[in-house]
């Protein structure tokens, strides 16, 4: 069992859902990302997604696009981020997944990346432009190194595909709550509650729901249905508004605490 499996198992025993928080590595600097990850964990995040910036993030809305741009301004690379995770591992065993697009992964080299990721303490990868059928090779290689490939399900995914995605994912399955890109939304689609039972029937792994979740009441509502709730853009916006301020890390921490209440 890796850190992700253990975490979901423990949470299940406690009858809780995972709060999964996304930040973009290197936004605004890798050092602040380091402090942010530790603060996120202290503030109640159960699992961390670290964004690896890509020049052309087609699944992201403006907030995360800007974060990636800020990070790329100082050429943050996948190697830098693996190094960062290695450093975090000296202090924390919080499960960490890297979220990026397929091209940076492909350029790094699949085998080399899987080995390096496992060595640094990365627990999984989420690659929104990679379908399980296009990702057979990387899934096999990641699993060989005990790193989880997490695939996504959308509101339009057919039930036939749900089974296939279930089989190809490890750790958990990412349910994209809306048709659209990342970004905070005031309301969540009404069909989520209706969709959850079908998803749970076909998917035998924990399901985490993301895209658009930004407030404590949404987290609470979704926790009733899903094993994990993912918050990204809302946190990234707080980082953006507080760049250059001394209390950036503390402010992010306060916000994450508020999500749990």
């Amino acid at each position: 069992m890796n850190r992700i499996d253990l975490k979901f198992k423990r949470l299940k025993a406690e009858g809780r859902s995972a709060l999964i928080t996304y930040i973009c590595a290197g936004d605004p600097t890798l050092h602040i990302t380091y402090e942010l990850v530790l603060e996120l964990e202290r503030s109640g995040a159960d699992i961390i997604e670290l964004g690896v910036p890509f020049s052309d993030p087609i699944a992201d809305g403006p907030t995360i696009q800007r974060a990636a741009q800020r990070s790329l301004k100082h050429h943050t690379s996948l190697s830098d981020i693996l190094e960062l995770v290695r450093k975090i591992r000296q202090k924390s065993q919080v499960p960490i997944l890297l979220m990026t697009y397929f091209n940076p992964v492909y350029q790094f080299g699949l085998e080399k990346l899987a080995r390096a990721a496992a060595g640094s303490g990365v627990d999984g990868f989420i690659i929104p432009d990679l379908l399980p059928e296009s990702g057979r090779e990387i899934s096999r290689i990641l699993r060989k190194h005990k790193v989880d490939p997490v695939f996504l399900v959308s509101p339009l995914t057919s039930s036939k595909r749900l089974g296939m995605i279930n089989r190809n994912s490890s750790g958990f399955v990412y349910y994209v709550s809306v048709t659209g890109v990342t970004g905070a939304r005031a309301g969540l689609p009404r069909d989520i509650a209706q969709r959850a039972p079908e998803l749970k029937k076909m998917i035998k792994k924990p399901i985490a729901v993301g895209f658009g979740v930004s407030a404590a009441r949404q987290v609470a509502a979704l926790s009733a249905w899903f094993a994990g709730v993912i918050v990204g853009s809302a946190i990234v916006s707080i980082i953006e508004k507080n760049i250059g301020k001394k209390d950036l890390v503390a402010k992010v921490g306060r916000f994450v605490k508020s999500l749990k209440s």
């Binding site: 990679l130 509101p155 595909r161």
Partner: peptide
């Protein structure tokens, strides 16, 4: 049938676009 010309092509898209 999967959209490949040799090693090139394919489908690298978000799941939402599959249908």
């Amino acid at each position: 049938k999967n959209g490949y010309f040799g090693i090139f092509g394919g489908k690298y898209v978000p799941e939402t676009l599959v249908p």
